[in-house]
Amino acid sequence: MGDPFDPEDTGWSPVSPRLATARILIGSLVTAVLALVLLGGLGLLVSLASAPAWLLAIPIVLGAAVIGWLCWWAPRNRRSWGYRETEHELLVRHGVMFRRLVAVPYGRMQFVDVEIGPLARRLGYARLSLHTASTETASVVPGVPHDEAMRLRVQLTELGESRGAGV
């Protein structure tokens, strides 16, 4: 199989780039809200308790740093997600810093969930989760394009039934 984490390996199906978009959007929103709250609190301190004015710069700088990091991290992480259907298993890999590869035999899949949140619905992707008898499997693929997720779910369920060796 070669190096399973090899980024150049083309055998892996990628997930939708919209996943990164969604993460940046939500992350930025949350950061902005938190920064505003902090700004408001510090503003009160500055105006009422005459704290130094440069304090106001802290939430702005921090917020910008977090958003900047998010814009760097989200596409990188998105690119690291990949899945691959082999004859007997579904392989899922992800992660840049903390890498993980899980091989789930079709016969061990108990059920397959497809979750679509409101933002995911707009952006056209879904989150696929696989469940086996073990809670450690924790195999989740976010950002799978809609149709692909539906196809996978049907396919995996059928394969699971036909290969099911049971627990």
Binding site: M97, F98, R99, R100, L101, V102, A103, P105, E136
Partner: peptide
């Protein structure tokens, strides 16, 4: 083997 579920390979940055 007939009771095993999935197999995982993991590597963190320090491990790498």
């Amino acid at each position: 083997f007939r009771k095993s579920q999935s197999v995982a390979l993991e590597q963190g940055p320090l491990q790498r």
